[in-house]
Design a protein around this nucleic acid. Structure first.
Lengths: 242, 242
DNA sequence: TTCAAAACATGATGCGCGTCATGTTTTTTT
DNA sequence: AAAAAAACATGACGCGCATCATGTTTTGAA
């Protein structure tokens, strides 16, 4: 059996134990009969750091769920500058909007931050599921509402705050939503370079490095890309909205 | 009957002719039996320029539809700076996300740009409607998806582009989505000051004025707040993504 | 129509941050 | 373990845009 480059072939989730998917809110609320049906339509795929899950401009074909790992959602400008819109974590849905309905195209690129596994479902099965199951549709509405609020909050921060404040906001956000406890403070569960941070707050790598150096001197953070630790969340919060 | 200050009391839409609401996508897709029911739950309200429809931080109580006029969606920072996230036009939904479900608060302020009329519905009726009518839920998902894409596109522009490019993007966007034909070019259908524009692209009033003056000299636009006209959409587009 | 309040305009000044440049340290690959 | 490639670091310099200041013009209310 020949292996395709960079992405493992899709795999049926024939007999997944219930608990494997129990941490995904959308699937948890399905009736047990419907869940079996949905499991048949879902396919699991694995990606690594150098893959792209889909590219900006590609036609939309699937609805996706992050099962494991971190996925970044990126847009880029004609001149090659990049902007990272969102880090998707396990349980997050993407391409769940019906803009993906008819002949639509991906507005951004989805790229793994490391090894990830993704569940996906073709559009038809997805919308059939939503039509059969109004509570699932409401769950999707809830998720999209949250995402919209986040995106608007991000726009506000980009529009009004200085670079150091935006960076502080980012760290607070990541620590709060995804941080794991650590003897030194709060550790971020994904590899995150200064370049990644720069792309998330709309600045250059150099400026992100300078500001992070300052944060380090001031004992607000410690560590580097492979293991970044937030040491003083309170002071970062204060700086973020100063 | 005592009149409440600034807002007209709610009015039942008892016997609205079908055509009055036919331009609202969400209502158009309801079955005719359900539409009658929904009409009973909808209330019409009128607001003027100095009212607020709801304020950032208020508890969410209603689902809203813009029937007539323009509503702006604003966030503000502790220091009093403001950021306008979105102009809502007739047919647009707001607070349609289920974050408004349980004890949630408005993430921004909704403010009329002039005289507007709004249809609204309490949360329970709204979610009942969605549960009865999966196609309506999918319509809401579609709307939220569009809004999310817009918000992310806006974040990208704020993160990557210069101020004159952001302003050009804004004008292109408004002209394309809401512009009406005019002998001179494309007229924008709402009163829009340089301050409004500044708040939409994350800059100061002075800078917005300076750039708009330049655009005027270069024959890209003409007119002022009360009647702004886009005269060369193509060149504005070119500037926006240069 | 008149007057006050917004909106528009334009200059001077300074700082934040982008850009380019050069070097060190850490991580990843072979 | 060694080599290659990222990531981190720090300085010099200049432009874009915020800030403050001082008019003029337009709009809308009395």
């Amino acid at each position: 059996m020949s292996k395709r480059p960079n992405t493992s072939p899709g795999k049926q989730l024939s007999s997944s134990p219930a608990d494997e998917l129990s941490h995904i809110p959308l699937l948890k609320i399905l009736s047990s009969t419907d869940r079996r049906r949905v499991l048949q339509d879902l396919t699991e795929r694995h990606y690594t750091k150098r893959d792209v899950i889909f590219r900006e401009g590609d036609p939309t074909e699937y609805f996706h769920i992050v099962k494991e790992g971190t996925v970044k959602c990126v847009k880029s400008s004609p001149e090659g500058k990049e902007c990272t819109l969102k880090m998707l974590m396990p349980g997050d849905l993407f391409c769940c909007d019906a803009a993906a309905f008819e002949g639509a195209f991906h507005p951004g690129t989805a790229q793994p931050m490391g090894d990830v596994s993704i569940l996906r479902m073709n559009k038809k099965s997805y919308f059939d599921m939503l039509r059969r199951n109004p509570d699932a549709a409401i769950e999707v509405i809830k998720h999209l509402g949250t995402r919209l609020n986040e995106a608007q909050e991000k726009a506000k921060i980009l529009a009004l705050d200085r670079t150091d404040q935006r960076l502080a906001s980012l760290l607070v956000d990541l620590a709060t939503k995804n941080g794991v406890k650590d003897p030194q403070g709060i550790a971020l569960p994904m590899r995150l370079t200064r370049q990644d941070m720069a792309n998330m707050v709309g600045t250059t790598t150099e400026t992100a490095i300078r500001i992070m150096s300052r944060f380090k001197r001031d004992r607000l953070v410690s560590g580097t890309a492979t293991r970044l630790i937030i040491r003083d969340l309170a002071r970062l919060k204060a700086l973020a909205s100063a």
